[in-house]
Design a protein around this nucleic acid. Sequence first.
DNA 1: CATCAACCCTGAGAGC
DNA 2: TGCTCTCAGGGTTGAT
Length: 271
Amino acid sequence: MPELPEVETIVRALRVGGRGGPSILKKQVQSAELTWPRTLAEPDGGQFLARLPGQQVMDINRRGKFIVIRLDRDTLLIHLRMSGNLRVEPGGMLQPHDRLTVNFSDGWRLVFNDARKFGRAWLVADAQQVLAGLGPEPFDPALTAGVFHRRLQERRRQIKPLLLDQSFLAGMGNIYTDEALHLAKIHPLQNSADLTLERADRLLGALRVVLQQGINTNGASIDWVYRGGEFQNNFRAYGRAGQACPECGTTIARIVVGQRGTHYCPQCQGL
DNA sequence: CATCAACCCTGAGAGC
DNA sequence: TGCTCTCAGGGTTGAT
């Protein structure tokens, strides 16, 4: 399930080439195909197919888990959700679960594949209308320990669901949240408002460490969709229920928090 | 505001 | 081998 590091890996490949395809920067859209209309959040299919042709790819960025492709008139935003993936390829047969295809004038195409149909795309004049509700980027220098601590105080929630809340912090998913909480030695049910400045500082540092490790290893290959990353070999807690904690040897536990499978060390991450 | 559950989906893995 | 069942999870929505 693509989280910040996986999305960042995909964005970098779109920008500079990689994962089997060239950069799509400067390419001009010739046409588009929509094989599963509900993939499109907005506008409707007719407008989408009419507005896209002729636009050129100016810039490719990431905001939270959104892929932000700035064109010369509109911005194409893509959220991969659970099972989405993007390919850049030189034509050929479409694959099962391909939902949206952008054909470029030089013959290459960008394909949005999404087995579970949870992913969404937007074509809007102003990207802010889609991204407005997102919290800060974890790597934003303006997000100091003091600011982070204050934001934790302002809410009074279990820390894990809060970290997964994209309006609180943009980009965290289930894997990296479990990893960061384990690294920071904080229990997933810990109340956010009760965290001291020192522990908030440690948590922010841990978030950045695990996200950076994820980016450095091209993300995690944890299911049959996203391939190519290596971070799954470094998991400390996620998916390791019943195995030994790498810090103390205690058996990693699994509980459900906010409808999410949650992995933690009962010894290291006491409440 | 916080919490919880349902919903959207399909493929994988377990159990039989 | 092949069937059925359960589980996985990001985000939205509605109820408590």
